[in-house]
Amino acid sequence: MIRIENLKKSYKNIHALKGISFSVPPGELFAYLGPNGAGKTTTIRILTGLTRRTSGDAWLGDFHIEEESLKAKRKFGLVMQSINLDQELTISENMDIHCRLFNMSSVERRKKTDELLVYVDLVDRKKSLVKQLSGGMKRRLMIARAMVHTPQILFLDEPTVGLDAKIRRRIWGLIKKIQNRGTTIFLTTHYIEEAEFLADRVAFLDEGKIVVIDTPQKLMEQTGTWAIDRIDGDQMETVYFKTRSDADIFIAKQEESYTLRRVNLEDSFLSFTGKKVIC
């Protein structure tokens, strides 16, 4: 559904993407993980036609992102990192304007708006001005808006940034529900637990390069099963172990305090890139 071949993007002397290649099959929830400045948003901007590539190619479905851009743009819905809603307009006006971008008839516009507002639980607020909504409601509206033309691909660029844990989990539920309809989802996030919970496959991106792509489970298995965090001087060090017995042998030699826990996806990212994912 998404195919990228040796995609590069440079801004003068800064190489934001240094030749990335991968593909995402239909119906997959693909998480694109990396620290700020890794190239996550640049990739989404190129795929959605907001930024021009420097070289390389990419296709959405059968359509090349630049050579057949109008057809490629019908394939996806986009939820940007920033809240890009018309704050002075109502929820239904925002939806209606977006429907018109896809040349939908008035009957289709009304039907789809009502259906999606029910879906994201905002139908009772459809006459409310966007500026009166909470952050979580705005995010849900952005997701509903991106779905008006029933896209095959949904790009979500940091969809839960700035939301509290409870609302973030509600958005996760919504994302899973959308995937269950058969939509391919391309998710960028720096919340590791978000990728771990949602993703079928994860790509670790660092300094414009793909470090590794695999399922969260396999990435964690490659790192280990158990992790011990301990303070070494003024730094925290994490040591990984394949088995609990190996971890126990290590613990027996410890004089300082430590924490024993299961390996998570953040550990995998750390071991593959040597970096913390910090926003």
């Binding site: 907001l50 743009k73 019908r74 940007m80 890009n84 809603l85 018309d86 971008l101 896809f102």
Partner: peptide
């Protein structure tokens, strides 16, 4: 508001 990006990403 970044609304311009909404139009840039639309098939128009």
């Amino acid at each position: 508001w970044h609304i311009f990006e909404e139009f840039q990403a639309a098939p128009i």
